[in-house]
Design a protein around this nucleic acid. Sequence first.
DNA 1: CTGAAAGCGCTAACAG
DNA 2: CTGTTAGCGCTTTCAG
Lengths: 363, 363
Amino acid sequence: MTTRAGRRLTIADVARAAGVSTGAVSYALNGKPGVSEATRARVIQVAGELGWRPHSAARSLSVARTGTVGLVLARPASTLGDESFYMQLITGIEAELAQQGTGLLLQMVPSEDACVEVYRRWVAQGRVDGVLVSDIVHDDPRPAFLREAGLPAVAMGGDAALGLPRVVGDDERAVQQVVAHLAELGHRHVARVSGLPGLLHVRLRDEAFTAAARSAGLHPQLVSTDFTARASRRATERLLQRRVRPTAVVYDNDVMAVAGLAVVQAHGLRVPQEVALVAWDDSALCSLVHPRLTAVARDIRGLGALAARRLLRLLAEGDSGADAGAGAGDEAEAQVAAAADVPAPASRLVVRESTSASPPETR
Amino acid sequence: MTTRAGRRLTIADVARAAGVSTGAVSYALNGKPGVSEATRARVIQVAGELGWRPHSAARSLSVARTGTVGLVLARPASTLGDESFYMQLITGIEAELAQQGTGLLLQMVPSEDACVEVYRRWVAQGRVDGVLVSDIVHDDPRPAFLREAGLPAVAMGGDAALGLPRVVGDDERAVQQVVAHLAELGHRHVARVSGLPGLLHVRLRDEAFTAAARSAGLHPQLVSTDFTARASRRATERLLQRRVRPTAVVYDNDVMAVAGLAVVQAHGLRVPQEVALVAWDDSALCSLVHPRLTAVARDIRGLGALAARRLLRLLAEGDSGADAGAGAGDEAEAQVAAAADVPAPASRLVVRESTSASPPETR
DNA sequence: CTGAAAGCGCTAACAG
DNA sequence: CTGTTAGCGCTTTCAG
C-alpha cells in the first residue's frame, strides 16, 4: 500500500492520512504530551502502515542532535587487521548503539593528531553527538581538544587525568594475577614483551608488571615493541640470548605471543618446560597453536558495549543536565568525572598448556 | 581568534566577516560560478580562518545527500572477530571514503533479513547515500530490495544476476591455481573444507574446485562448515578418517586452516609430507604457525577500496545521469550493469612449507 | 488538546 | 556578478 512514486514520504503525508496536523504527528511519535491517547495511537498506527520515519537530516537540524556517535581508530592501518581486538570492540559498541537506534560513524587515521583533525571537522559539521576514544597515549592531544570543543566523549582506558568519563579496565589486577601464577609455578625470571610504549595502558601494565614481580621476589625484564609479530620475534630472540634467560614471557597481545612461541620452539626450547608463555588478549589464535597459550581473557565486546552505553547516558544527561562548560572548580569537576567512571568487565586468566604444571628449570 | 562562545558558527557569520551575502559564500565554497575569483578567494580565506564547515544536517537537508555510505555486516557477531577479513575490508573502504570526505556508517546484524530492515530504516530516514554489500547468499533478499528502494549499492562478490554493480573477484582462477599447484606436487586426492554453504562465493569456489580437480584428473572431496575453528576440526577429523584419505586439504579461511593443521598434527601426520594444507585468505596467522601455511592471498583492503570507489562513482553519476528506475529493457539494463562491474585485485598463491616440494605418499 | 507558523543552517533559483 | 528569498522536513512555541 506504500506509495512507490518518487516523492519522499513526509510528516505531512502522515498527518493527512491520520487527519491531524503535522504538529500532532510529531508529538504523538515522540511520546510527548499534547495529544490524546486515541490520537496518538491512530498516528502511530498510520505512520507504521506508511512506513514513515522522520528524515534524519531534518530532525537533526531542528533538535540539534544527530543520533550518531563517532569512533576514530588511531593506528597504522596495517596493524588494525591483525588483532581481533578492534573488530570485537566495534561489535560490542555497535550492538549497544543499535539497540538505542544510534548510528556508528567509523574512521581510521594514522595518528592522534589526525584524529583530532577528524574530531574538529565533525564538530564543525555537527556530524556526531559524541565520540568514543581508545588507545590513549602519553600526552594525548585528544582529551584536551574534546573538553574544549565540548564534544561529549567516553574514553576506553587511560587515566583519571584525562578529565573524560572512562571505562576502566583491571589491567593492574590482571597483571598481578599473571605474575602470581608464574611465581606459583616456580618462575624466578619473568619477562614482558610489551606493546607500543606510548600507549598509556601499555605503560600501566609495564609498571604493574615490574612492581608485582618485585614484590613477589621475582626478577622482571621488559622489552618494548610495536605490537607486530615481527617485533615480537626480535624481542623474543633478544630475551632468549640474555645471560639470565627468563623462564616465562608475557606478551602484550595474541599475535605477538604466537610469534614468540614460534621463536622459542625454533630455539629448540620446550614450552612450557623450559619457557612458559602468556598472551594478553585471548583469541582463537591462542587455542589454535600447540601448546595452547595461557592468556588473559578480556570481554572486549562487553567493554565496547559499556563504553557505548556510558556515552549514551552522557548524551542523555547533557540533554537535560548542566552545561558541561569548561571552567573553574577543577576539584569538583574532577570528582564528578571520576564518579562517572565505569568498571570494565573483569578479565580473567585462562590457564592452558603454555604455563602448565611442570616447574621450570631455574638457572 | 575563534569565537569560543556557545553559539554555532553559521554561514551568516562567514558572510558578514567577508562582507558578502550568504549566497555568495555558498557559491564560493562549493566551487560554483556566480562569484568573482577575488571574492571566492576572500571567502575561502575567511571561512578557513573561522574554521567554518557547512553544518552536515543542514546541507543534507537542502541537497538531499548525506555524504555518508553504509555498510551492514550480516554475520553472527561471534565470528566477526576471528577473521581479519572484515577489519581489513573496512580499513580499505574507509581509506577510500575518507579521501572524498565521505563518512562510513557501520552496523552489524545477525541475518540478511535483519540487514534489509536496516536498509529500510536508512532509506526512510534518508540516512545514507548508498551502501556496500558483502557476503551475498543464495536467494539473497538484499539486491531486490535495494533495486526497488532505489538505494545505490555496490556488491562485493555475488553474481551477475544480482542486478547490482559489483567488484568481482577471481576466485575461480585462484581455485584453479591452487588445484594446479597441488596436482603438480603429485596429489591425487584433494579435499576442500568450505565455509557457510549459503554464501555465493563459497558455492562458486566449491564448484570451481570440483571442476578444476576433475579436469586435472584428481579426486575432489568437499566438506561444508560454518567457518569456525570448531567446525574445521570436525571436518578435518572426518576427512582423515575417510577410507580414501585426501593428501591435500584446502581451507576456506585462515582460522580453519590453522585449526585443521592442529588436528592433522595431532593425528601424528606430517605436514606437508603426508598431508598438504592450503588456507584461503592469507593472514598473519598463516606465517605464524609451523609449518607456515601456503595461502591464497587477496588484497582485501584493495577490494574494499575499489568497492568504495565504485560506489562513489555511482553516486556521482546518479547526480547528473539517468534515473536508475526499475523498469523494462532488462537486456540493456543487464548489459549496463555488467559493464559497470569492476575487477577486484588479483589474488595470488603464496607457497609456503605446508605444501612444499616433498611429494605426498599416494595411496 | 489541537492547528498554524517560525526557525534549525544551508543551497539554489530568483531579481537587481 | 551580487544580494534576497524560498524551501529542504522536522520540532516546538504560540494562539485558538
